[in-house]
Design a protein around this nucleic acid. Structure first.
Lengths: 232, 232
DNA sequence: CGCATACTTGACGTCATTCAAACCGTGTGG
DNA sequence: CCACACGGTTTGAATGACGTCAAGTATGCG
């Protein structure tokens, strides 16, 4: 199935939004849409012919599995995000759908050609890559020095931002996009610790849990303080 | 002082190595060399007019400081490495010289122009950025799940690689480029823990310490096992 | 209803931190 | 030359945070 850019929900925010209409159409010739069900894998660490892709809808996780079989989530990918190993000979991490997802994929060689043909695309991807780098470094900052509570508070804060439409105001009510287990292994904690700290955050009046996944932000400022991160 | 690319020690490995002789000369017009003494800062988090730079000699650290004044080293930069905030309005981290260093700096607007004029440069920087992203993610992997011992072993392994001329064989003798304190705050540990674990690694026969900074790899394989990372 | 999956809660152990003291190499001044 | 102070490092003992193990509580689905 070829691409229907005209009706694409991320046509104005994805990397390809920097292209002219003409260029985009040309690129679209090489692309294919792909659907991934929750739990399905786009590619695995070690794969040699990894596709590149823009996420159109849904959510992905980038994760790695150590020798003991423990998974570690390294990053989440939201709609309009770009995935792809354009330079290394093989993928270093797994990419798996966290929810049913819609992708727009390109063969690696096509992507490489597009990078040569459309300099604006290379710049757009460079920008994204730098943003990803920042995000990853701020995770690193958190996991290296922060307590379990701080990590969880920061994660909740990030989710609140992602759940909100406006970029710099967190949503005051949202559903956790991850299970406890997924949060735990993203933060380098255990399920039990996540559960306990979530309870403590509720006790101290920062949040309120409704059901298993519903979160209401009672005191966003307190959450920010606990997280030890600079204010919004 | 303008640039002397002809005698540049990283002329074949830095980002600008993808340019033609002519393009490089044009870019060199905009560049300036700069010397930083150990401890001097290239720019600080929050700075608005950050320069871009290629490290020619020496070593830099990218670090951030939390509200309590604790520093956290997020990444090291080795010669031929590139630093620069080309897209965000201000720097998010400090960049400080770990050793006396030689840089080749460019004003941000000049760099932006070069990015437009030389598509190959944008691709080269994209590639670097992706590599940095991988490196940061593998640090993240380590600090999230790994024990103090594993983190230290991995760091030593990385140093051994960096100290060696050949890319995929670690040097069997090298000097630690960082103090205990710097290692500690890179790994999210305390000085004491680093010191103790270093002792334990020596006891178990993985390494031998000579003086305060000299390290000899007795059993590199053991080190890799302890680090929990995939083999070379 | 029965079973599975996700989550919560408690008791206990382990490992890194904290606090405190000693150690060592180096430079400075008497 | 020695005394001394200083930064970086090592070592020890006690505390505390998070992990582990194990039991118990929803919630959903056949």
């Amino acid at each position: 199935m070829t691409l229907a850019c005209a009706s694409c929900p991320v046509r104005d925010s994805a990397a390809c939004s920097v292209l002219t209409e003409e260029e985009r159409n040309a690129l679209a010739q090489a692309g294919r849409t792909r659907h991934l069900n929750r739990g399905e894998m786009l590619f695995a660490a070690g794969d040699q012919d990894t596709a590149c892709a823009t996420l159109v809808a849904g959510a992905l996780k980038i994760s790695s599995t150590d020798r003991d079989g423990n998974e570690q989530i390294l990053a989440l990918v939201h709609p309009s995000g770009f995935i792809g190993e354009m330079f290394a000979p093989f993928a270093s991490h797994d990419v798996i759908a966290l929810a049913d997802s819609q992708l727009c994929t390109f063969a690696r060689q096509d992507m490489e050609r597009a990078l040569n043909d459309y300099p604006a695309l290379a710049r757009a991807l460079l920008r994204r890559s730098q943003e990803d780098l920042h995000a990853t470094r701020s995770m690193l900052e958190l996991t290296a020095h922060g307590s379990a509570e701080a990590r969880l508070a920061a994660l909740l804060h990030d989710f609140a931002q992602a759940a909100s439409a406006s970029p710099c105001h967190p949503a005051d009510r949202f559903d956790l996009p991850l299970t406890r287990g997924e949060m735990a292994n993203m933060l380098g904690l255990t399920i039990e610790t996540v559960s306990r700290k979530l309870g403590e955050l509720e006790e101290m009046g920062a949040i309120k849990r409704t059901g298993k996944r519903g979160i209401e932000l009672i005191d966003p400022a307190l959450l920010t303080v606990v997280s030890g991160r600079p204010a919004d």
